[in-house]
């Protein structure tokens, strides 16, 4: 294992984050704050409680998940797409590293960034709504697991994309609907029965449900199922990455 390489990639990617601090941290925090103002304070005050939790507090875990998913995917996708686009990927390909180091470096940095972002949003939320966290360890666990899993997913998209459009299309066309329909703003039990079934095919439901359980002890699906689904998706992504690097797919001529 080439530890120096992992450190080099990780530092390099983190430096990129700090260079673009406004765009990468400030703007997601700001947009989530706007959600709190609109849905939590303005609309939420006229809504009843959901599962015994005030609406403003109810949407916090979902909103954090939403940012976490989007940021993890776009950070990691961008991180590996850029060297491909700029041609600097030659160095990575000629370096004494295997895909293990490359993935740890890039995905680690992308996940770190979204975890920090998630925690920042959590702190920001405090200014708008009162909430409590019943299972802090599970909360951190879901945060980290989701960040890593979706950074892996983003990494795969970055490898796959060969133009900027493809880089945008998955987050925009697939992830946005899935997250909005993933129960961030409502409890699944509020849906008509048939949609309660269909919605279970949406992986985001499990993430949001599990994460919300760590806050308020209430979940749409069993927390063990949530954790299992997340781990399963992570395993899928790991296998995909392994396969991509083994075949040199889209990286080597």
């Amino acid at each position: 294992m080439n530890i120096h390489a992992i450190r080099a990639i990780y530092r390099f990617e983190m430096a990129r984050t700090f260079r673009t601090l406004m765009q990468s941290i400030a703007s997601p925090v700001l947009s989530t704050s706007l959600y709190f103002v609109v849905f939590g304070a303005a609309i939420g005050s006229r809504m009843g409680e959901v599962d015994g939790v005030s609406y403003g507090a109810f949407i916090i875990p979902g909103l954090i998940m939403l940012s976490l998913l989007n940021e993890s995917i776009s950070n990691a996708a961008f991180g590996i797409y850029m060297p491909k686009w700029a041609g600097t990927i030659y160095e990575l390909l000629s370096a004494p590293v295997s895909y293990v180091e490359v993935v740890i470096g890039y995905v680690g940095a992308a996940a770190t960034k979204s975890i920090v972002l998630g925690l920042l949003i959590l702190v920001t939320a405090r200014f708008f709504v009162a909430y409590h966290i019943e299972h802090p360890f599970w909360m951190i666990g879901f945060l980290v697991l989701t960040a890593v899993t979706f950074s892996l997913f983003g990494f795969i998209i970055g490898l796959w994309a060969d133009d900027f459009q493809k880089l945008q299309v998955v987050p925009l066309m697939i992830m946005t609907p899935l997250t909005f329909l993933g129960g961030s703003f409502y409890s699944i039990s509020m849906l008509p029965p048939i949609w309660q079934k269909i919605t279970l095919f949406n992986p985001v439901v499990y993430l949001v449900s599990g994460f919300r359980w760590s806050f308020y002890g209430k979940a749409d699906v069993d927390v063990v199922v949530s954790a299992g689904m997340t781990l399963g998706f992570m395993a899928l992504c790991l296998i995909a990455v392994w396969w991509i690097f083994r075949t040199g797919w889209k990286l080597k001529a």
Binding site: N2, H4, A5, A8, I9, F12, E91, L92, A95, V97
Partner: peptide, 23 residues
């Protein structure tokens, strides 16, 4: 090809290369 990390400093990019090659 002149492929470089446009936004990096010279020092950072050289440091990165050394690390990447395991030194």
């Amino acid at each position: 090809e002149l492929s470089t990390d446009a936004f990096e400093s010279v020092w950072a990019t050289v440091k990165f290369s050394r690390g990447l090659f395991g030194r």
